[in-house]
């Protein structure tokens, strides 16, 4: 049960990152869009892709505890960084999905800490 909650959190992060990635992709290629073909859009495209990869690895793979903690730290930095970028890109939908990813991260961490304390 504790593992399932933990994994669901990571899955939520992955889902939010995937949607964020698609939004960025659309924004990047929208003709005459306000952030089309901009370095900033490319940056969040990369950051959401990395977030998706890391969250999927946690959700569907296995890794040593040290690496897990490292990924958790990197993911929260990625979420916050992408959210700040989304704010300055004036991309409100991306910002909303970063908030969803943050919820997923807290959910994941809450489940994870219970699992760690129970073991």
């Amino acid at each position: 049960m504790q593992d399932r909650r933990s994994l669901n959190g990571a899955r939520l992060i992955a889902a939010a990152a995937a949607i964020g990635f698609i939004i960025c992709l659309i924004d990047y290629f929208t003709p005459h869009g306000t952030i089309a073909h901009q370095w900033g859009t490319l940056l969040v495209l990369v950051s959401t892709a990395l977030m998706l990869g890391a969250a999927c690895w946690i959700a569907f793979g296995s890794m040593p505890r040290g690496l897990l903690v490292l990924f958790e730290v990197l993911i929260i930095l990625d979420i916050l960084g992408t959210a700040v970028c989304a704010y300055f890109l004036e991309a409100p939908i991306l910002l909303v999905f970063m908030a969803v990813a943050l919820v997923g991260w807290i959910w994941h961490l809450a489940g994870n800490s219970q699992r760690i304390s129970a073991s």
Binding site: T34, Q38, W39, G40, T41, L43, C85, F88, L89, E90
Partner: peptide
């Protein structure tokens, strides 16, 4: 002003 897409 936008720099690299970011609104200042």
């Amino acid at each position: 002003v936008q720099w690299w897409g970011f609104y200042m």
